[in-house]
Design a protein around this nucleic acid. Structure first.
Lengths: 340, 340
DNA sequence: TTGTAGGCGTTATCAC
DNA sequence: GTGATAACGCCTACAA
């Protein structure tokens, strides 16, 4: 009776097929090592009993979980959601399952999540950016757990990564802004502490100012957590300065949408009174009016390539490369050409 | 040598603390059953060796994984991301880890994901809606895996759920629209097959027409996958009809934003030429101009309560209740009051 | 090609 | 309060 209700094991299948457990195991894991005839018999027993390998036992015996952990700052930003979706799809195609956690942009939470995923036997880890306590990397190395960073391309670090150059991308956008005749430039950045993507974008903008004979130190920068409201608030305070900027460049599209809204709330029109730029090219950027000039980042491709690279590392086909993806400028209505 | 590099086990801790493995295990799992003195000794050995329990072994011995699986249609819609975030936070607080998968709104993919999560030993499952092959529920019941549905409140099904009444919510919004004097009403719905939330919203609108002496059958309805572009396309085709609707009610905010954009692309102004309504109340709804009239759904609360309810089921403190959350109307600029 | 048997690291049930 | 010890279900040399 109770036998009927309980979940079948390898033993049950073996008995039903009249073979040993080893043969059943082989049928499932390396079918080519079993002759067709017995394999058929075994498989039909598997089918009939509805057998599924016990996860814990498999993990323990094989010493791997076929699980990949990913820790992202937040699920609430579409860019991470989109990349993660592609990451998951690609993992799935390769027989891995995704374990996600979010850190809310807080290093301590991220460390806790890392330990938690490792404790759960993650075979590899995807993290965002490089900027974290080196002890974390030591810990992961001692556990021999491959780590891959996404969202960054900083080859000097030597850490495996699939990403783009935040600094150079922002430089390119800023150069375009300057070419359009803007000189009074302000920035609304995300919090840069512990966030090398945000920091890189600020540096890229400063680089561009410097390269064009403008004073990087003179540029007003407001750092604020990503969020529409925060962008609106920041814009308001920037526009209350004596010398109003002609353009406000934002660390991401969410801030930019907020800035746009903030401007409109003040009765300013974009881009006549002030231009606004973003970063990421989320759907939102094309939905608002005017559409936002931004840097397009290939999020899905990044997710997909990260999955491929990380699985290669886990399966020891690679020790971790540094892959660069290209970002592209999207010049849209929110940026005014002052020459035109 | 190799001993140094390898991950410490219970045995190592036991030896270091001069106790048995059973005592170490107890210290970790039910510390109150161990006297303070030895507990201290054990804990410091744990600390010192950097011991973490082996997940597979623990799962196998305890016969549970402390893992909850969730299958959502897509991570790319902010509503699921937000609810999932809250769900995860609450699970984490209760010592559970979240395993997520997405189905892309396709029943076959969902079934595959369900089996995959079960195979990985999920202690419980969160699904969206009730509408799926009964065989799925039989399967889960035979495995004794608790399932909770979110996003729906349909007490007649008897299935455990934490959600809201999609039909009644849409009815309320439609009543308001009718009270505002609208009579020529059209709808842009998500695909209703296999999606009881979308289907419920269509029914709610039809109910309202009926209740107000209008003909539900006469209402134009376009079904299309959720997406901004699809919303825009659908609006265009609705507005090409002989008798243009005065209001287009959409199955969610993403479609509504698309409809808004579609109208604007046609040179129509909202709400002067046509009103638009949405559903969900995502951030987007307040960012576009005009802001979208919609139904606010407490996504975070739903995620949190679902976590609490599901853990209670897993830990056998409950057999699964049906919890209703309240939605509220948000009347904003995209809906014109024709009486005014 | 197939079977035997040891081991994986915990938890939990007994005695002590 | 603590210590042996038997599962837990699978994988994988090694043997046949």
């Amino acid at each position: 009776m109770s036998q009927l209700r309980s979940v079948p094991t390898l033993d049950d299948v073996a008995r039903a097929a009249g073979v040993s457990t080893a043969t059943v195991s082989r049928c499932l894991n390396s079918p080519e090592r079993v002759v067709e005839d017995t394999r058929k018999r075994v498989m039909s027993a598997v089918e009939h009993l509805g057998y599924t390998p016990n996860f814990g036992a498999r993990v323990m015996a094989a010493r791997r979980t076929f699980t990949i952990g990913a820790i992202i700052p937040t699920m609430e930003n579409a860019i991470f959601a989109r990349a993660l979706q592609a990451f998951q799809e690609e993992l799935h195609a390769r027989g891995y399952t995704l374990l996600v956690a979010s850190s809310a942009y807080q290093p301590e939470i991220e460390e806790e999540q890392i330990r938690s995923l490792v404790a759960r036997g993650a075979d590899g880890l995807l993290l965002i950016g490089h900027d974290r306590d080196p002890a974390v990397y030591d810990y992961l190395k001692s556990r021999e757990i491959p780590v891959l960073s996404a969202w960054v391309y900083l080859p000097d670090t030597g850490q495996p990564a699939v990403g783009f150059d935040n600094r150079r991308s922002m430089f390119a956008l800023a150069q375009q802004v300057i070419d359009f005749g803007h000189r009074r430039i302000a920035m609304i950045s995300g919090i840069t502490k512990g966030n090398d993507r945000a920091a890189g974008r600020v540096l890229g903008l400063r680089d561009a100012l410097q390269a064009n004979g403008l004073d990087p130190e003179a540029m007003p920068v407001i750092e604020t957590p990503y969020g529409v409201e925060n962008g609106a608030d920041a814009l308001r305070s920037l526009m209350q300065a004596d010398a109003r900027p002609t353009v406000v460049m934002c660390g991401n599209d969410v801030l930019a949408v907020g800035a746009l809204r903030g401007a409109q709330d003040m009765g300013l029109s974009v881009p006549q009174d002030v231009s606004v730029t973003g970063f990421d090219d989320i759907e939102l950027a094309r939905i608002v009016t005017p559409q936002i000039t931004t840097v397009h980042v290939p999020h899905r491709e990044m997710g997909r390539k990260a999955a491929i690279a990380l699985v290669d590392m886990v399966e020891k086909r690679s020790t971790g490369d540094v892959v660069e993806l290209k970002s592209t400028l999207k010049i849209r209505g929110s940026l005014r050409d002052l020459n035109g």
